[in-house]
Design a protein around this nucleic acid. Structure first.
Lengths: 208, 208
DNA sequence: CCAAAACTGTCACCAGCTGACAAGAGACGT
DNA sequence: ACGTCTCTTGTCAGCTGGTGACAGTTTTGG
């Protein structure tokens, strides 16, 4: 099974090398300042070849996010069956982010940190990240639908839960970061979900 | 006041003409298939000039969304002071979308429809739209903070409400659209907020 | 009416990205 | 071991988006 032919292994290696080189350069020079030629040169392939592995520069940078979503979906699928959906999502998110931070479960903590920084500083990258999330959120919605016992293609609530969860994480974290840049990401995610679970229709207080 | 100099008026006119031409072409050929040269040619300016009015092709397409957000913020600021925040946001959204659909309040219904279609079919454009929303959401958060009597730069809850609201609208609408393409956008927004207000931590039902 | 400021067009250029074609390397049967 | 077929890659040519620099024109304001 692991023996998948030399050709396959070589491809995997090039792909990995491209990601390595990309993240090294991104970390050193930033996303925009890094050209695709540089990435390709560092791995000794042509830039044309780069585009046979990734459709865009953004895709390399977000390959990590993609894996993260894989894991998130997997973790969510294995949450206890009696948990309410938002609660299950809550714990899944925290779990995945913890793994990233600790570098366990196949994640590289440094690289995760780099991506986090890139996405935070580069709006275009952030946009692509959101786009990626939007595409893959359907998988989450499907699982949520299963839990709720409804068909996610008809009932919009599963999508609602999934997207609101993702959205809450992003925004709350961004808002918090400015106030406390040193905070642990996983703690912020945890707090965001706590607030969300309590409900967000806060009363207006009369101006004194 | 209306007399703001010939130069100003000319600029406004070119800007408007560029938007007009862009939407005409977008509507006819789609977003990607329309080049900036074509847009510029239609208005008889150089493509270089186009970039002096808009930083990217996306920005033209989303200029409408930008105006929409202007109005949304304005409407929200004038909601009754005793409404809970999510409720106020709910009514503001519905109000703005209604205006777009009816073509009142300075909106062009057809153009709105076109933009809606473009964003729905073009993921890159959708991503930019979300990005724009993310940038401008701070204004909303500030107002929400005022209502809640908290400082939105310290307390993340205003941001949370704003982003969750925006996010809910987008996702619920997208999910519904597939099931019922003819539905009125404003009705979908209304329903999305109803669900959101009721809370989203749905219980898991045991698989039979 | 003239000078400063603003606006625009032209040109040159870079980076991202794609299609076509040919050459090289791995897979596979004989 | 050999040839062949397929997959992968490099090269090249080309398009679009986007930006800086410079020069010419128009508007503004005194």
């Amino acid at each position: 099974m692991t023996e998948a032919g030399l050709r396959e292994r070589k491809k995997l290696r090039t792909r990995g090398a491209l990601i390595d080189a990309a993240f090294t350069l991104f970390g050193r020079k930033g996303f925009d300042a890094t050209t695709i030629d540089e990435i390709a040169d560092a791995v000794d392939v042509s830039s044309r070849t780069f585009f046979r592995y990734f459709t865009s520069k953004e895709e390399v940078a977000l390959s990590l996010l993609d894996e993260q979503i894989d894991v998130l979906v997997d973790v969510f699928a294995h949450r206890p069956a009696d948990e309410p959906v938002l609660t299950a999502l809550h714990h899944s998110f925290v779990e995945v982010v913890r793994r990233c931070e600790s570098g366990s479960g196949g994640f590289d903590a440094d690289r995760y940190e780099t991506m986090q920084r890139l996405v935070a500083t580069n709006p275009a990258l952030a946009a692509h990240g959101i786009e990626l999330g939007a595409v893959r959120i359907t998988e989450l919605a499907r699982l949520i639908g299963l839990r709720m016992g409804v068909d996610h293609t008809v009932d919009p609530r599963p999508h609602l839960v999934a997207s609101v969860g993702v959205c809450a994480v992003q925004t709350a974290v961004n808002a918090w970061r400015e106030a406390d840049p040193g905070a642990r990401y996983s703690d912020l995610v945890d707090m965001a979900f706590q607030l969300l679970t309590e409900g967000v229709n806060y009363p207006s207080v009369p101006r004194t």
